[in-house]
Amino acid sequence: MAILAVAVATPASAQAVSPDFDWGDDSSPFANDRECDDPRFVGPGMVGFSDEEHRGADATDCFLMFKRGRITLADGAGSDGAAAPRTVVGGIDYGDDTGRWANDGECDDPRFEGEGMAAVLVEEDRFKDASDCRRLVEAGSIALRAGESGGAPSRSAPAPAAAGDVDFGDDTGRWANDGECDDPRFEGEGMAAVLVEEDRLRDASDCRRLYEAGSIALRAGEGGAASAPATAVPTAPATPPPPVTPSGPVDFGDDTSRWANDGECDDPRFQGRGMAAVLLDEDAMRDASDCRRLYEEGAIDLVGRSRADVAPAAPAAPAAPPASSTAGIDFGDDSSRWANDGECDDPRFDGEGMAIAPQGEDTMRDATDCRNLLAEGRIELR
């Protein structure tokens, strides 16, 4: 297995790395898939979720993405690839800032709780959002969860409670009976990759089976019995999206979600194989392009409604074709930052002449490259 450690010639605007930067190798099962899976990096060229097992294990993808400016080193990673120092203040080990969502103003470390926490917490961010979490603790917006130690994780664990002493709840969770435990009170190899508070006590069968098999255990400080939720300052409920009537068209909304144009529908009003793995109410009516395309392809449907009952809204009238439209194909213009680089960055096309990771934002914005490559037979419309 080859180890990739090379000097990188980067443009003046790109982030610099040491000539001795250790890119690692391609031992990840997701290597060479046109996305960087190494958690030392951040940017649009990254995979949706990255964890520590892929550190230094996706060298080729990450090198190419870095070279093209699609990713940069995370704030916590040094220019030589070394790990960042940990932040320990007031007896709390906050870890470092190597998390994907570090320095975004919210604490993503699942050891904490409070109004300053991110909406979705995942285990891979434990000890990896130091600056955000430290600031919010000092501001009184978050605190360590009951039973969570402020120090580094211990390798020893208390004896597990008997299954009969654990209240597993019920199976009303969205992901119940899928073979993984989604209840965030537990931890272990049998847990789902993404855990959210709404699944607490709502995946009983999966969690009981995995608990009895020894694949998961209750987290330190988590009692087996259901407990009353902590008192919190009430907030006004979010305004629900307008209902879709069976006789009316589908209002897909707009593309203001942070997950818009990523190829998956993030609008929780829909369901189907084209949906994102994690859905949030805040994304309702905010991922229009993805959801419209997947709806029209039959990959998703409105929750609780038949496609025969609901017709999609008529698409907006197309703009007048620009000068670059030829042979019935509207190539758009050259306003992309990657225009005229010899590769087609428009994700409507496919083929050997395409950029490594086309982005939705480059749709119809790389006309010259795409027209030339189509004429050469090196790309084609999807």
Rank of each mutant, 00 (worst) to 15 (best):
residue 247 S to K: 12
residue 269 R to N: 01
residue 258 R to C: 15
residue 233 V to H: 12
residue 285 M to H: 10
residue 298 G to L: 06
residue 249 P to L: 05
residue 248 G to S: 15
residue 299 A to M: 11
residue 281 D to K: 06
residue 293 R to Q: 05
residue 256 T to N: 11
residue 280 L to Q: 08
residue 280 L to N: 02
residue 282 E to T: 10
residue 271 Q to L: 06
residue 283 D to C: 01
residue 268 P to Y: 08
residue 283 D to G: 00
residue 234 P to T: 07
residue 239 T to S: 14
residue 280 L to C: 00
residue 277 A to P: 05
residue 280 L to T: 04
residue 255 D to L: 15
residue 274 G to K: 12
residue 250 V to Q: 02
residue 302 L to I: 08
residue 254 D to G: 11
residue 266 D to V: 08
residue 232 A to P: 04
residue 245 T to Q: 14
residue 240 P to M: 11
residue 242 P to I: 03
residue 296 E to R: 00
residue 275 M to K: 08
residue 285 M to P: 00
residue 298 G to I: 07
residue 268 P to L: 11
residue 301 D to Q: 15
residue 258 R to F: 13
residue 238 A to N: 07
residue 243 P to I: 13
residue 256 T to H: 09
residue 273 R to H: 10
residue 276 A to F: 06
residue 243 P to F: 13
residue 254 D to T: 09
residue 240 P to S: 14
residue 277 A to R: 13
residue 265 C to E: 02
residue 273 R to L: 13
residue 247 S to W: 04
residue 244 V to W: 10
residue 275 M to C: 08
residue 264 E to T: 12
residue 302 L to H: 02
residue 247 S to F: 05
residue 273 R to D: 04
residue 292 R to E: 13
residue 255 D to H: 15
residue 281 D to H: 02
residue 274 G to I: 09
residue 241 P to A: 14
residue 296 E to P: 04
residue 254 D to H: 13
residue 289 S to R: 14
residue 260 A to L: 07
residue 287 D to G: 04
residue 263 G to C: 01
residue 298 G to H: 07
residue 257 S to L: 13
residue 271 Q to M: 07
residue 238 A to W: 03
residue 280 L to G: 01
residue 230 A to N: 09
residue 243 P to K: 08
residue 268 P to C: 13
residue 294 L to W: 03
residue 257 S to A: 14
residue 270 F to T: 01
residue 265 C to H: 09
residue 285 M to S: 07
residue 288 A to G: 12
residue 293 R to W: 01
residue 294 L to E: 01
residue 279 L to G: 05
residue 269 R to W: 00
residue 278 V to C: 12
residue 286 R to T: 08
residue 270 F to L: 04
residue 261 N to I: 13
residue 260 A to V: 07
residue 281 D to N: 04
residue 249 P to N: 04
residue 303 V to M: 05
residue 252 F to E: 07
residue 249 P to T: 09
residue 237 P to I: 02
residue 239 T to R: 15
residue 269 R to C: 00
residue 263 G to N: 01
residue 266 D to K: 12
residue 304 G to T: 11
residue 236 A to C: 10
residue 274 G to T: 12
residue 231 T to W: 13
residue 270 F to D: 01
residue 282 E to H: 05
residue 291 C to R: 02
residue 263 G to S: 00
residue 241 P to N: 06
residue 249 P to D: 08
residue 272 G to V: 00
residue 253 G to V: 05
residue 278 V to W: 03
residue 252 F to R: 14
residue 229 P to L: 09
residue 257 S to D: 12
residue 254 D to A: 06
residue 239 T to N: 11
residue 231 T to S: 15
residue 276 A to Q: 05
residue 235 T to Y: 05
residue 281 D to V: 01
